[in-house]
């Protein structure tokens, strides 16, 4: 337990986090004989590698991430999508399942539509998206509620192997899709259940650093049900 506490130490940019024998990983750099952090985050040391897990800031697109984005523009080659990252993302026409006529593009995904989409390529200043998937999980959002959270807290909302999200799904009888960029899509039969799910997600995001989060969330859900 004490070892776990040590791992959760917060570091600031420029702070020395390790000596020469470690290799600098994500968000770290070598400065003289030391390795320093370049971001506000938590240090994670494994065997030889030391890296920093960021705590705040804008979403950084990564290959394979499922994200929720808004269609901003339509060009003859595809759709321009805002995924809340530092760069605009692009969904090429060929990455849309089925055959789409250029004149029909508006009817498929119009401006302002929200899409559950996947990042299939990250370039230096570009992000490419795809809507093709084997299980048809990538689609246009037609109904439901969107909850926006800090993208760095998304892993806590999902929980270990999806334990937390399953807990919310079962408690509120809703369907939840979590975008890695911090947008969460909740859809249920009743608006009340969607709002309940939203409240639970917001509770998790506010208490990410708490010990025994699962128990606290279970208690929170019980309190919500008692109020009804």
């Amino acid at each position: 337990m004490t070892e776990k506490k040590e791992k959760r130490e917060i570091v600031i940019p420029g702070e020395i986090i390790a000596s020469e024998e470690f290799l600098p990983g994500d968000w770290t750099m070598k400065q003289g004989k030391n390795i320093i952090s370049t971001r506000l985050g938590i240090v994670e040391k494994s065997d030889k590698l030391v890296k920093v897990i960021p705590l705040s800031g804008v979403y950084i697109p990564r290959y394979g991430n499922v994200v929720i984005g808004e269609v901003k523009d339509i060009t003859t080659a595809g759709w321009v999508v805002d995924v809340k990252g530092p760069y605009q993302a692009f969904l090429p026409l060929r990455e849309c399942p089925g055959f789409v006529e250029v004149s029909e593009m508006e009817n498929v995904y119009g401006i302002g539509d929200l899409l559950v989409t996947k990042i299939f390529n990250v370039g230096r200043t570009s992000v490419d998206l795809t809507m093709k998937s084997r299980d048809r999980s990538l689609n246009k959002i037609r109904e439901g509620t969107i909850v926006t959270v800090n993208p760095h807290r998304v892993p806590r909302v999902i929980g270990k192997e999806g334990s937390m999200i399953t807990l919310i799904k079962n408690a509120t009888k809703t369907n939840i899709t979590v975008g890695q960029n911090g947008l969460i899509w909740v859809s249920g039969e009743k608006v009340e259940s969607e709002l309940a799910a939203k409240k639970i997600i917001e509770f998790i995001v506010e208490n990410t650093t708490a010990d025994g989060l699962t128990e606290k969330v279970e208690k929170f859900i019980k309190d919500l049900e008692d109020k009804k």
Binding site: P13, M29, Q31, R39, S56, G57
Partner: peptide
């Protein structure tokens, strides 16, 4: 630093 901008 809070905005997560990489800084030396």
């Amino acid at each position: 630093a809070h905005a997560g901008v990489p800084m030396k």
